[in-house]
């Protein structure tokens, strides 16, 4: 039962992630992302991480995505209309390929940093259903505080990269 649910949810999460890239309207992207986040949250629940699931919904679905929505609504998207459509165009252009490459590289670097900084074995997972909340807090702010900082650095780098990419495109459009 749980296994079937896991595969279904994984499929939903992956499809949602694909939808983010392929949707033509930014609104469709955001909604796909929302579905993906929810599937992930339920997967966390299945694995017994209640806190992680709640935090996932609280932070990503409840705050970050709402911010995305807010920005998208402020942009002038009149020409795109309100219909949802899929398009393969974003995967084509050279800039997109570059962006994908950079993202993958950054992700790999992040993984390596996190792995290298995590001294020794992964933390013991508490009994399924129980929430190792104090353990999580101690780990996050004590033992793994270096990878935690590294991830925030990675996020910052990603943000800068996105700004740079978006800026250049705008200049070309303006010409």
């Amino acid at each position: 039962m749980a296994e079937i649910l896991f595969y279904v949810l994984s499929a939903v999460a992956l499809l949602g992630a694909l939808g983010v890239i392929l949707a033509r309207s930014p609104m469709g992207s955001v909604l796909s992302l929302l579905g993906s986040f929810f599937a992930l949250a339920v997967i966390y629940l299945l694995a017994g991480f209640q806190f992680l699931a709640a935090a996932q919904i609280l932070v990503y679905a409840g705050a970050v995505l709402v911010l995305f929505l807010f920005v998208i609504m402020l942009l002038n998207l009149g020409q795109l209309g309100t219909r949802f459509q899929l398009s393969l165009a974003p995967l084509a252009g050279p800039r997109a390929r570059l962006a994908v490459t950079v993202a993958v590289a950054l992700g790999l670097v992040g993984l390596i940093v996190a792995q290298g900084a995590a001294f020794g074995a992964p933390p013991p997972v508490g009994d399924a259903g129980l929430d190792p909340l104090p353990e999580l807090a101690l780990g996050l702010f004590g033992r793994y505080s270096l990878p935690f900082q590294a991830i925030s650095l990675l996020l910052l780098a990603t943000m800068v990269a996105v700004v740079v990419l978006a800026k250049r495109q705008r200049k070309e459009d303006g010409r």
Binding site: Q50, A54, A55, L58, A61, V66, T82
Partner: peptide, 28 residues
């Protein structure tokens, strides 16, 4: 009775904004 009742509650209240935003957006 879940151990993280408060968190669950907060995450749900964070979601309530979606109905409003999406309703406003989808109305065209």
């Amino acid at each position: 009775d879940i151990d993280i009742g408060v968190l669950f509650l907060l995450s749900m209240s964070g979601l309530s904004v979606y109905g409003v935003i999406l309703g406003g957006w989808a109305s065209n």
